[in-house]
């Protein structure tokens, strides 16, 4: 299904951010992407804050997946 495809792709992209495989992304992981992605520190911080729905400082796979689904215009829950 499309939902499964989105989750599969999300898993790949999530792993690019969560290099140690912790199971979550924190702000340090996000900062490390600066230099790898054409986004500024501030933009990466904003992206993190906007994906971190509950604002607890940990970006879970579910939150990431939701954000990616939103980017694709899908409602993945």
């Amino acid at each position: 299904s499309i939902e499964e495809m989105v989750k599969e792709k999300s898993r790949e992209l999530f792993a690019l951010c969560d290099k140690e495989g912790k199971g979550f992304i924190n702000k340090v992981d996000m900062q490390r992407l600066h230099g790898e992605l054409p986004l500024s520190d501030e933009q990466l911080r904003d992206v993190f804050d906007s994906l971190d729905n509950d604002g607890n400082g940990f970006l879970t796979f579910e939150e990431f997946c939701e954000g990616f689904g939103g980017f694709l215009g899908l409602n993945v829950s």
């Binding site: 790949e12 992209l13 690019l16 951010c17 790898e36 992605l37 054409p38 986004l39 933009q43 990466l44 904003d46 992206v47 906007s50 994906l51 954000g67 990616f68 939103g70 980017f71």
Partner: peptide, 29 residues
């Protein structure tokens, strides 16, 4: 005063930029 719809749109653009960059990064990285 802040234009909420504009802020939402720019936020969306920023996320799109982020996910696009990640998608482009995938091969070879």
């Amino acid at each position: 005063k802040p234009d909420v719809s504009k802020t939402g749109a720019s936020n969306e653009r920023m996320l799109a930029n982020f996910f696009n960059s990640l998608l482009n990064k995938k091969p070879g990285s």
